[in-house]
Simulated assay, not measured.
Amino acid sequence: MFDPHLAGLRALSTLCLSGCLGLGPAAQAAELTVDVLGVASADGSLGCALFNRAAAAQFPLALAAATRQRQPATPGAMQCVFRDLPAGDYAASAAHDQNDNGETDRNFVGMPIEPWAVSNNVRPSLRAPRFAEAAFTLAANETRRIELRLQR
Rank of each mutant, 00 (worst) to 15 (best):
Q58R: 15
G76D: 12
V36Y: 08
S13Q: 13
V118G: 02
A139E: 14
S119D: 01
F108S: 14
L150G: 08
E142S: 12
N99V: 06
T14K: 13
F131P: 05
A56S: 15
L46H: 00
A77D: 15
L148H: 01
A94H: 03
A134W: 06
R106H: 13
E114I: 08
R10S: 07
R68P: 02
L23A: 13
L150T: 07
V81R: 15
R68K: 07
V39P: 00
F59H: 10
T104S: 13
D89C: 09
V122F: 04
M78Y: 04
A26L: 15
T74W: 04
S119A: 02
A73F: 03
F59D: 07
E31K: 11
Q69L: 07
E147R: 15
L150R: 02
P60A: 05
L23S: 05
L50A: 07
T33R: 07
C16T: 05
Q69Y: 05
A27M: 09
R83Y: 00
P72H: 03
H5V: 12
M78F: 01
H96C: 10
A66N: 04
A92Q: 02
F51L: 03
N121P: 03
A87M: 05
S125Q: 14
Y90P: 04
G76C: 10
A7E: 13
L85A: 03
A7P: 05
A64Q: 10
D84N: 15
C20F: 14
V36E: 01
R123W: 13
C80L: 09
C80Q: 01
A132V: 13
R70G: 09
S125G: 11
R10K: 10
G44Y: 00
R53V: 02
A55L: 05
